[in-house]
Simulated scan of single mutants.
Amino acid sequence: MNTAHEAGSGVISAGVLPAIGALALPAIVYLIAAQRCHRQPRGWNHWRTASFIVGLIILGMALRPSTSDSFQDHMLGHLLLGMFAPLALVLGAPMTLALRTTPASVAKPLVHLLRSRPARITTHPAVLLIATVGGLAALYFTPLFTLTERHGALHMVVHAHFFVGGYLFAWMIAGPDPGPDRPSVRMRLVVLGLA
């Protein structure tokens, strides 16, 4: 018996349940932290909470089992996964929320990680531009796309690359969270234009 989700059938496959759980966990953690932060004198912006939750919903839509094998469906999924979900999640400022609600013993190592040399290299505009645009070029102009259709694990790796690259790119361009040496607005606009 096929356990895949079929359009209109109302059946949820066993593969979808872990994904729902994986997305519910960060939502619950974020909501608890936002509530704790909201009680503090500085409070917490509800729009950030809404943005983060919308980002998780978009991510869930991008990771849902496909009901079509069309190229357009794959492209839409990759746009949701690599652009729209990361942007909404970034605008939720999850690192700022974490730094404001965790004990100093947890927050200090996070700050050191954000200021570390590997973080500066990983979040450099040139590296992110190559990773984001290069990933798309590699997928659609090489045999990689065909290979991802045959190998589920490779498809998951490509999805992870799109999401992580998209998240870091959105953070570098528009993210309110702290991090290493954010480039100037002019530089960010140039990188965005090139992308």
Rank of each mutant, 00 (worst) to 15 (best):
A27G: 12
A27K: 09
A27Y: 04
I28H: 07
L31M: 12
L31P: 02
A34R: 02
R36E: 00
C37H: 00
R39V: 01
Q40R: 14
Q40W: 01
Q40I: 02
Q40Y: 01
P41Q: 11
P41C: 11
R42T: 13
R42I: 12
R42A: 15
W44V: 00
W44D: 02
W44Q: 00
W44R: 03
N45G: 01
H46W: 09
H46D: 11
H46K: 13
H46Y: 04
R48L: 07
T49D: 05
T49R: 06
A50S: 13
A50Q: 03
S51V: 07
F52N: 07
F52V: 09
I53K: 01
V54Q: 06
G55F: 03
L56A: 06
L56I: 05
L56P: 05
L59V: 04
G60P: 03
M61N: 09
A62N: 06
A62S: 13
L63R: 14
R64G: 08
P65Q: 15
S66A: 15
T67A: 12
S68D: 12
S68E: 12
F71M: 13
Q72S: 15
D73G: 11
D73E: 13
G77R: 15
G77P: 05
L79S: 04
L79Q: 08
L80P: 06
G82A: 06
M83N: 12
M83I: 13
A85V: 09
A85K: 07
P86V: 05
P86Q: 04
G92I: 02
A93W: 00
A93R: 12
P94A: 10
P94D: 03
P94F: 08
M95Y: 12
M95I: 15
T96L: 11
T96D: 11
L97K: 09
L97H: 08
R100M: 13
T102F: 09
T102R: 13
P103S: 13
A104D: 14
A104C: 11
A104E: 15
S105Q: 12
V106E: 00
V106F: 13
A107E: 06
L110R: 10
V111Y: 10
V111N: 10
H112Y: 11
